[in-house]
Structures are given as C-alpha cells and as structure tokens.
Design a protein around this nucleic acid. Sequence first.
DNA 1: TGTCGCTGCTAATCCGCATTACCACGGGCA
DNA 2: TGCCCGTGGTAATGCGGATTAGCAGCGACA
Lengths: 342, 342
Amino acid sequence: MPDKATTRLTQRDIARLAKVSQTTVSLVLNNRSDASARIPAETRDRVLKVIRETGYQADPLARRMVQQRNQILGVFTYESVFPSSSGDFYHPFLAGIEECAERLGWDLLLFTSAPVTAGRRRIFHENNRLRIADGCLLLGRHIPGDELARLIAEEYPFVSVGRRDDAGGPVPYVGADYAPATRIVVERAQALGHRRIAFAGPGAGAESSADRLRGFRQAAGARAPHLPTVDRSGGDLLDSLLDQKVTAVFVEERTDAVALLAAATARGVDVPADLSVIALGDSTRPAESDIDLTGFHVPRRAMGLRAVELLEAVLSGTATERQLLLPCELTDGTTLTSPKGV
Amino acid sequence: MPDKATTRLTQRDIARLAKVSQTTVSLVLNNRSDASARIPAETRDRVLKVIRETGYQADPLARRMVQQRNQILGVFTYESVFPSSSGDFYHPFLAGIEECAERLGWDLLLFTSAPVTAGRRRIFHENNRLRIADGCLLLGRHIPGDELARLIAEEYPFVSVGRRDDAGGPVPYVGADYAPATRIVVERAQALGHRRIAFAGPGAGAESSADRLRGFRQAAGARAPHLPTVDRSGGDLLDSLLDQKVTAVFVEERTDAVALLAAATARGVDVPADLSVIALGDSTRPAESDIDLTGFHVPRRAMGLRAVELLEAVLSGTATERQLLLPCELTDGTTLTSPKGV
DNA sequence: TGTCGCTGCTAATCCGCATTACCACGGGCA
DNA sequence: TGCCCGTGGTAATGCGGATTAGCAGCGACA
C-alpha cells in the first residue's frame, strides 16, 4: 500500500490496485482503443473505478517528458501579477485569459518561480520551467528581444499579448491596433479645427509606444512636437504646451493625462476650452480620476481571450495567421472640443 | 551528429562530443566532487568547453523528474479569480500568495479547468486535476464541508485561507481572528456609552460570518438585536435601527455599511452623532466610498502569505500547528463616537 | 607476488509516463 | 493436426537527467 501522505500516487499504484499492468492503466487513461490495444469494458471500468476512488492524476512533468499535452496554459508576466501597482494593469488581460481557459478546460500556470532581478522577471534562467505548460502567454509592456528570439529559436509555442517587433523571426501576438486608432483621433481633432497639436509620452521603448507615435505622425506630420513625460510634472508639461500654443495634446499614458488635467485645474487652464486632452488608451487604474477623457479604449480583455485562442490554434497546428491586431474603440469623453476662435 | 535544428541538445550529445559518458557530463554540471565521483580538471574543462560552445541547457523537466516535488502550488477559488466583481476580493490574498511562492521558487496553478456550475466551482468533478500540484490553497467565502471532508479523507495536502469548521477532521487553515476583533470594537463602543447596539449582516453561513456574530455576542450579550441585510435596502435597515433606538450598529459587510451610510445621508441622519457605524472588516472594493469607517482590518495579504508557508511546512512534514488565526488590526475611522446625551 | 586503496571514469538504474513489440490462449479452418 | 488470426493483455523501452554501484588501472606496501 503506498504511503499516500508522503508519496505521489503513480500509475504503478493504480495498476497494483486494479490488478493490471501499468501499461493497461496508461492505455485506459489515454482512451486508446486502437487495433494494437484493446481493453474490454470490464477491465477498463475496473481501472477507472480505482482512478476515481484514489483521485489519481498523471504527473504533468512526466507527461511532458513524453511530449504530451497537459492542458496547462503558462502565463508569464514581466512583473508580479497581483501587487496592486501592476495588478490593475494585468487584470483585464487575465480576465479574458481566464474566461477562455475555463472554456477550453485548461488550467493557468503563473510562472512565479522565475526570479525577479531588478524589478523584472526573466524567462530564461537557471531553472526555467516553461515546458511544464503546453504553451505560454507573454504579458508585459516591454519584452526583451533576446528572450523572444530564444523562444522562437527553440520553437517553444507562445503568444505575446501585445504586438512585438520581429526578433529573429516573426513573433506570434494578439495586439491592439494603436496606430490607426491614434490617427483617427488626431484626424478628428483636426476636423474640429486644431492645427497646433502635440504628442506627449515616451513614444518609444515599447512597441505600443512606437505604434501610437507612428499613428500620430501619420496624421499630424513629422514636425508636430513630441514632448517627453518622464521625470516631468504635469505643470512642466502644461507650460511647454502653452509655450508652443498647442491646442490639443495626445497623451500616451493616462496617468500623464490625469497629471496634466490636475495641473490645468490648478492654473485655471480650462479643459477642453483652452486645451483639448486626448488619452491614447485606458487608465491602468480606472478609479483614479473622475474626468471622462476623450480617446480610445484598449480591448484588454479581448486581447487576453484571443491570445488564448491563438495559442490553442498554434498548438493544434491549425493556426493560419499568427499576428492579430484588434481595433481600439473610440471613447467620446468630454476633453476634446474645437479650439478657441474656430 | 544530432539534428540540432529540430532536436534539443541532451547530455548524451555533450558526452559524445567531449568523449566522455553521460554520467560524467551530469557530474560536471552538478559540480560533484565527492569521494565517489572525482573528475580531474582536464576532463572537467573539456566538458565545460563543449557545453559552452553548444549552449547546452539541461531540461528542467527531466531534472525535476528525479526529485520528488514539482514546485507547483495549486490555487483553487470558488469563483473566477479575475472578473472584477470577485477579483478585488481575491486580490490581496493572491498578492501574498504570489510573494511567498516567488520566494520559495514555486509556480502557481490556478484551477480554471474546474467547471463552474451555478456560479460556483467544485473541486471534485469528473476530472479533477488537484493532484497536478504538490499541494493546494483553497480560497472562498464559503467552502462546502463535503469537499473539505473528502480532501481530508484523501490526505491531500491543502491549506484553507480562512478558518473552517471541522469536516470529518480538523481543517488546516490560516484565518483571520474575527471574534476577538469584533468583541474589542463592541467593547470600545460600550466604553463610549453605547447601550443599544445591534449586529447587521448574515451572521451565519460562512465561518467568517459566524465568528463575527459570536464575538459580538460575547460582548453584547445574547439579546442584542441581530438584523439581517439580505434583500434589504440601506433605508430599510436604517428604519429598523432607528425603530429600535440603536445607537451603534456593527455591520458585517462593508457594502452594507456603505448602503447604510448613503441612506443615513439621504434621511439627514448624522453619522456618527445620531448613529455610530462600525465595519467588521475591510471593503472588498477600496475606492467605493470616501468615508473612513471605524472597524478593523482583515490581514488578507498576510493570510495568503502565511497559508503558503503553512502548506510548505505540511509538505515537508515540519508543520506542528495546522490552524492559525491572524489578528485583525483595528482602524480608527470617523464613524464611531459617544451616543447623544453621554 | 598478492592485495589494498586510490584515481578516474562508466554502466546500470530510476523518476512517471506513453508507446511499441510481443506473447499466451482459444477458436476456426483446411 | 497444424496453422492462422483475433483477443487481451504485458514486458520492454525511451524521454533526459541524477545517482549509485562498480570496474580497470596503477602504485604502494607487506
């Protein structure tokens, strides 16, 4: 009798209890009824009964050793998932992922064992356990190209949530289509009469930043000002904008937009009468501000959901297109109007 | 020569290239220099050189196969984790769990494959995958006793987050110590002069509800009124309280407290001058209200963290006490003061 | 000269599972 | 009677490592 308390139940244990061989247990479990392996209902039921009674589950590691699927979906995040700072960012993605995983009967494996160095995780380290899962989803604003390249080189099945540039090959992703969304809101502002417009935010670093700036340039032209926001207060940014007589500013990160609005309120600058503010994406923390910003909505939940679907397609070999951009939905809001004197 | 393009490099490949045995490669990799295995520097260097040149990395799965544990920590929630309705409830627990798992080098497996029927998951179903994980944490306001009983009977290693009544045996848990915390806030109100006090909320169903009511009764006596809140508006509750000339009410769920406060504001009932309101635990959604409720804080994050620690102890056989209650920290707030005329 | 002990390795085995090869038995058929 | 084939299984093997047991060779020493 196996020592249940300390030892994991194995197929050998099941075999002994059902008075068959380990082979038979495996065949029953995998529902094999080929010509080469026929198991009569009586034997099958006996084995299944023992399995049910003991609650046996195959060791996922051993299964993966022999290249089987585990119904385990890996989720790799570049920061901790739950701490509230980043938690609200990941939350909508994960909600979509969970929904789809639930539908497919998969469990979610969060790679929390990946050591965090300098505030970020790394996929590849001493003892990376990616292969426990059948495949993996990658989450994070920025993902190092070398890690992506290695995943591709090793032919590990994964899907990135968010568009990524090629890394030694095309990266499978489900992203948000920032460029056209940005272009459209810019054009909308232009249609209202805005001529002096600016982009505020990094505009580089992550693909999502670059995409927004690209969309901005498509509509606003190469010479429209691009103002950085790093290490800069909302007041500073506001000063620059007023100096340059900007009438509409497109802010990449909502937190910057909120800071800008606060500064405007403090200085008596009226938004949108004096300055229109357009947010190029949602808040990472919804309740932070009451102001209903004009801009667009990033379909985070849908991205997570579709990413799981894509990974499923990749795993089952039915994937045709491995790069998918979802449209961003425009949000009306109250922070965009015609500039003064128009 | 192995087909590098498609096949992963193995120790056997390294062995062949370095003209040694697979054993030697393994010994070199694990830096073994026991009496039983001596590798001269020359051989060691030769092997290391090949490893460096080929970029060989040991398969983590195969490594763990040989060991006993999988370093997979199961997390079972009775509702979906991420949808925002329940998400904010689970969030602090999960933050603590993640932190501790990270420290221990464990991955987190969320059992999303468990089918949701009638809004709740069940552990035991046709194909429960609990045993994929080394052990499991259980989260949820209420956990069916039959499921707990079965886990205990099967000697599956688990820890409940939140106190649970015995279920065919003592349930390992890390809970919050509601009873004394409730007793203390009641006594504090009594010290301020409150004589007509009431308990509002279910007071039964989940252990956490029963514990609060028990603490309330310890200080307030058996005859103090207990008002239900289910299917009842804040106004209704307020009416009952005023009818019974209650001066201080202890509300089990913060949402009820918030509803009550809203009703009070609408009716011109002043809190705390006319009625003191004490919340027996935190909000599940922090930003819902601006009012700083008097009451106590449930150490959710610490509970998650300690639960992982306890599970680790259970798994390694070093657990002595398997039931742990963490103290709740009192919060001052602004909704408790002396009753009028005292 | 035999043997003891040390060095420097390797063969064999195991981890838990899936898969392949093969075997014993009985009935049908020439 | 001998052969073939279908049935119902099992033994053996491999996945990629870690570990244990053991072996060949050689010098020292009695």
